[in-house]
């Protein structure tokens, strides 16, 4: 197990280094002069020169790379060109919205998907199963911003249980914060839950066909006992894979939902930074997201080895 962890951690570190090189080369080297790129075609030459100096562009490429990497460790990520605030502060503030939102949505989607998927598999071919399959089909097909608008109409405009958008900040209390994130989290969770429920159902149906389920039944377990004790855990591997992908997506992919609910999250930050050609913000946010995705994959692999004893020892 230790060797397994060591090996996974090493591959995690290598992935991060390679990713940082790619991000740096694509954003800082390929465009030619980043300062000219950021300022656009009509910029005055002295403005460009000032920015070049601020960005330290006269230094050799490898120095700039090391400077940036060092900054990631010390939190010195530079100052945003458009927001005029340190990038680290900017990102930290946004993370306080995006990470809870992603975790909230993922929790909801898991809480919905697991029982629904297990129920559908247990009652295969029944009306319940048909209903689940139809409902999840709809959940995958309908875009989440439409769900979002529907939720706002019902719960904010009509029932007035939640506000229609904005984020009061965690200073207003955990309850208020969670309340503001509830509708966005539901809107994000529903399509994810639909996908996850289908994966859970088909993985379970596959495991229910396995010989060891028949063995379990021959030992005298009821259908339900065989399902809960033997099938569910065996069906978790594909489900964990999808969960990992969904978390990575939720962290950065919530742009549209953040826009619908006016949430100051990472998605909106990256969107605005790209629109404004603020490469200083873009490179750090992109790097952060890359690290997050690799980290999630790393955690998913550890989770695999906890679920399946065959994986941890096979090094």
């Amino acid at each position: 197990m230790t060797a397994f962890l060591f090996q996974r951690a090493l591959s995690f570190a290598i992935s991060v280094v390679v990713a940082s090189l790619v991000v740096f080369v694509v954003l800082e080297v390929v465009p030619g002069d980043p300062a000219a790129f950021m300022l656009g075609l009509n910029a005055a030459p002295d403005t460009v020169a000032a920015l070049r100096e601020q960005l330290g562009l006269d230094a050799p490429v490898w120095m700039r790379y090391l400077g940036w990497i060092g900054g990631i460790f010390t939190g010195e990520l530079g100052t945003s060109y458009t927001y005029r605030v340190p990038v680290a502060e900017l990102i930290a503030a946004r993370l306080w919205v995006s990470v809870p939102l992603a975790a909230y949505a993922l929790t909801l989607s898991t809480l919905i998907a697991f029982p629904v998927g297990i129920l559908a598999a247990a009652r295969r071919g029944s009306a319940v199963d048909a209903g689940v399959m139809g409902g999840t089909q709809l959940g995958i097909a309908v875009p989440n911003f439409w769900f979002a608008m529907l939720l706002v109409l019902v719960f904010s405009v009509t029932l007035r249980w939640f506000s229609a958008g904005g984020f009061p900040g965690w200073d207003a209390g955990a309850f208020e914060g969670l309340r503001a994130l509830t509708l966005p989290a539901i809107a994000l969770a529903l399509p994810q839950a639909a996908i996850l429920a289908r994966v859970m159902r088909s993985a379970l149906l596959d495991t229910l066909e396995e010989d060891y389920i028949r063995t379990a039944r021959a030992k005298g377990l009821t259908r339900g006992q065989a399902l809960w004790r033997h099938a569910v855990r065996n069906a978790l591997i594909p489900v964990l894979t999808i969960l990992g992908l969904q978390f990575s997506f939720l962290l950065a992919g919530a742009i549209i939902i953040e826009n619908v609910f006016f949430l100051p999250g990472l998605g909106r930050l990256v969107f605005q930074a790209i629109s404004a050609r603020d490469l200083i913000v873009v490179r750090s946010v992109v790097m952060l997201l890359v690290i997050a995705v690799i980290l999630v994959n790393f955690l998913v692999e550890i989770a695999y080895s906890l679920v399946d004893p065959r994986l941890g020892r096979r090094v």
Binding site: Y212, D308, P309
Partner: peptide, 9 residues
């Protein structure tokens, strides 16, 4: 099938 008749987990 002894290879598949036992729960691997």
């Amino acid at each position: 099938e002894p290879m598949t008749a036992l729960n691997p987990l």
